[in-house]
């Protein structure tokens, strides 16, 4: 089992290197002659108005809470999916009941307009 995670470790090393190595190469090889035009915001952005670290509306906390509930649901889905081949119809019905109960919660959130992007 650990051998399979070894591939993930190799993947991680390559992924981190993929991000960092070009940065290091460009840092070593580039010439630095900045002027105001070069340092200005261009292409992928506009000049910001006011500070960029702002306080967000408290209403967004609802999205976080709903996400956390469904994240916990995923914890139960995971062993179900792994053992699915050995489980049979009964487990499928159980999981449908489980998801249905949480869908009731989602429907409630929907109905109470908790998901409306104001």
């Amino acid at each position: 089992m650990l051998t399979a995670y070894g591939y993930i470790a190799i993947f991680l090393v390559i992924a981190i290197g993929f991000g960092i190595v070009p940065l290091i190469i460009s840092l070593r090889e580039r010439q630095t002659r900045p002027d105001p035009v070069k340092l200005s915001t261009y292409e992928c952005g506009v000049e910001t108005i006011g500070p960029t670290w702002v306080q967000f509306r408290v209403g967004f906390y609802l999205y976080a809470l709903v996400f956390v509930i469904f994240d916990v649901e995923t914890v139960f889905l995971y062993p179900w999916a792994v053992a699915y081949g050995k489980l049979g119809l009964y487990a499928l019905v159980e999981m449908f009941v489980f998801v249905l109960l949480l869908a009731v919660g989602l429907a409630y959130a929907w109905r109470k307009r908790a998901l409306v992007w104001k």
Binding site: V58, V66, I69, F76, E94, L101, K112
Partner: peptide, 22 residues
Amino acid sequence: PFEIASVLLLVAMIGAIVIARE
């Protein structure tokens, strides 16, 4: 216990919505 966990999650979600909704 597994199905009761889903009821618990449902209660948590509805409670969160009731408390946090403005």
